[in-house]
Nucleic acid binder design. Structure first.
Lengths: 251, 251
DNA sequence: CCTTAATGTGTTATAATGACGCAATGTAAT
DNA sequence: ATTACATTGCGTCATTATAACACATTAAGG
């Protein structure tokens, strides 16, 4: 795959890549989809290169889609990373030897790559982590237990989470991270997990319902310990509306 | 200049550029620093290319500095633009002929360029718009009277303003856009101009002073019609602190 | 059947916001 | 000089939002 790209490098934007921070939510944990190439010691964010005939947003969708199989989810560009030495220890000649790529073609890879960061929010249960070949492992990892990552991928991940936390104040979140029917406590735990902070149950309920994006269903969650919580779903129309205009007007 | 870059294109990141939206404030108008190359009909944002041995942030500082002469001001990356055809009508062979660049070297320019957008807030009065050569005009233009721009520069400018408006709710603004001593009405007009919205005088005063970033000076503005307003300055220390932690906590 | 650990609903004090009123001040017109 | 006028500075009040907390309800399990 990488070999194909390098050998057809004239079809790809040089020195530019895309990395996706794909968030999911499960077992009250914020998960991140990470990849490990078998021969490598470290994990990395799913990424890809940009065909010269594709918009960068389209290329990002391709990356997300190839790893998760989902389409039409929340995907947003958040920052671009371009320190001089960000990949100088990584894309070195060993890879080219390993992939049996001739030196002239290989030069395409041996330069500083600037990478455009996107983050996605996806429904954990709808995703089957998809390894594109047998040499790599794709896995959901709790964001609190992320192992050492290649290059500056930790920095990229942190920035994505910072952005997500900030955008939590500007727009509703949850539609893409929760199943269709969910309970208020579940939604609250999502918020608490993202923010890494305890919230008051009762105040949370009031605030979240006041936004007007929730529909209370005439149905309770079954098979739960203690009192069965009510189920809710998002009112997609109002949700989209609030996504557009934003939550806080501020000034 | 462009000729130099193309002829030494191996020293520059291929297919990648930087564009700066430089905001200033004067006469109660939000100004944008724009450039017009004499032979061109349209204006453009000041931009530049990225030396392979420079961080992208450093390259952005270079662009800003070369046009304004200022250093250490507010400069922030806000988005990266990479539609497939964003520059296909612009960087064409005519330019290469005009610059007398041989075809092989010129290929560097004839591809899709992805551009990283930065926006800067600078003190209008401290800037001397600096044209790098006689063929170009550098000018402050009221953001409401921005003429047609090349490529997708209008889109970039709009996105920068959107970002600025959003960040107005997250952090204090003004330190880089106003002179050292200023009045509350001036600061309010800055906010009103950026937001394109009238604010209540009295509520603005209360809110802005409650942030705790202003120092009331024992001095009034002179030579003004009507009642002389008090002068204020920013408490740099508290300002920086609020910049870090942010204004609204939200959740 | 009682304990336990959740959920659902409400209350109260405090703070933030939005919409105004009015006096003080300096310019400009008469 | 006096007055009209625009603008600043400071304050009020009703409404809304927020934070902290009390209590009843519900289901599971000993």
């Amino acid at each position: 795959m990488l070999k194909d790209i390098i050998e057809n490098s004239e079809n790809y934007q040089p020195g530019l890549s895309i990395d996706c921070v794909i968030f999911g939510f499960h077992d009250n944990q914020l998960k991140v989809l990470l990849i490990k190439v078998d021969k490598s010691q470290k994990w990395s964010l799913p990424g890809g290169f940009i065909p010269v005939d594709q918009d960068i947003d389209t290329a990002a969708i391709t990356v997300l889609n190839s790893r998760t199989g989902v389409e039409g989810v929340f995907l947003r560009q958040f920052a671009t990373f371009g320190k001089v030495n960000r990949n100088e220890q990584h894309f070195d000649k060993k890879i080219l030897e390993y992939l049996k790529i001739e030196e002239e073609k290989g030069k395409w890879l041996l330069r500083r790559f600037v990478t455009i960061g996107y983050y996605a929010l996806v429904d954990f249960l709808k995703i089957i982590p998809n390894s594109m070949n047998r040499n790599e492992t794709v896995e959901w990892i709790d964001h609190k237990e992320v192992p050492e990552l290649i290059l500056d991928h930790k920095e990229i991940l942190d920035k994505a989470l910072d952005t997500l936390r900030m955008e939590l104040n500007l727009m509703p979140i949850g539609y893409n991270l929760l199943p269709e029917k969910f309970t208020i406590p579940e939604l609250q735990k999502l918020y608490e997990t993202i923010l890494d902070k305890k919230l008051d149950r009762r105040n949370f309920l009031r605030k979240i319902t006041n936004i007007g994006i929730l529909s209370k269903l005439d149905e309770k969650k079954s098979n739960v310990a203690h009192k069965a919580p009510n189920l809710y779903s998002f009112d997609k129309e109002k949700y989209e509306e609030v996504l557009k205009i934003g939550l806080n007007q501020g000034w």
